[in-house]
């Protein structure tokens, strides 16, 4: 009674990673609630958010795990990488150290996810251009060398936030279409939902007892 047909056909799992204070949770809230939270406190462990989007006419539910950036959570948050279809790797364009740590975040991601995981690099706080500490060009070059997608974004103004989450989904969807991502693999990070799972496929068409009319 409680669950009607799913109103989406896929679930994609995402993780958001990066140093503490780069704005991971603010990006999540900007994407899920279209709101900017000033003075966002440090995340405890992991935070979870969802949103249904549409790619190529298909409804897709994004399940997003936003990990705490503080070191003391690192050992346990690593287990959330497993089975992620998309990884948003975030640094702060006004703090060089957060950019310098990207290679270690990338190593973790590559080691703990699977080869089809889409990694999207986000240079957050693009609204603070006057305090910029990392140029667009060098980050773009880093992204290109490592085969990552890349934008500079602002969780505050919302600039490019939508794009980062949606482009990642498009790339994942493309991998499914191309057959590069195996839906049956245990840790692909993608689940396919049949159109109306409330009714077993094998049931004879005459059984209309649970008809919702």
């Amino acid at each position: 009674m409680t669950s009607g047909p799913y109103n989406y056909s896929y679930i994609f799992k995402y993780i958001i990673i990066g140093d503490m204070g780069v704005g991971k949770s603010c990006l999540l809230h900007q994407f899920t609630d279209k709101k900017f939270m000033a003075d966002c406190p440090h995340t405890i462990g992991v935070e979870f958010g969802t949103r249904i989007i549409e790619v190529a006419g298909q409804k897709i539910k994004l399940q997003i795990w936003d990990t705490a950036g503080q070191e003391r959570f690192r050992a346990v948050t690593r287990s959330y990488y497993r089975g992620a279809a998309g990884a948003l790797m975030v640094y702060d364009i006004t703090r060089r150290s957060t950019y310098n740590h990207l290679s270690s975040w990338l190593t973790d991601t590559r080691n703990l996810t699977n080869p089809s995981t889409v990694i999207f690099l986000i240079g957050n706080k693009s609204d603070l251009d006057a305090q910029r500490d990392v140029t667009y060009e060098e980050a773009k070059q880093f992204a290109d060398e490592n085969g990552l997608m890349f934008v500079e974004a602002s969780a505050k103004t919302g600039q490019n936030v939508e794009e980062a989450f949606l482009e990642t989904a498009k790339k994942i969807y493309q991998s499914i279409q191309d057959g590069r991502l195996d839906l049956n693999a245990a840790e692909s990070g993608v689940q396919h939902k049949p159109a109306s799972p409330g009714r077993p496929l094998a049931a004879p068409p005459s059984s209309r007892d649970n008809c919702a009319c």
Partner: peptide
């Protein structure tokens, strides 16, 4: 899985930290 209360730890993780 709709919220953090639904989440279940994997047995490998539990054993590792145990």
């Amino acid at each position: 899985m709709e919220d953090v209360l639904d989440e279940i730890v994997s047995s490998e993780d539990l054993q590792k930290f145990e």
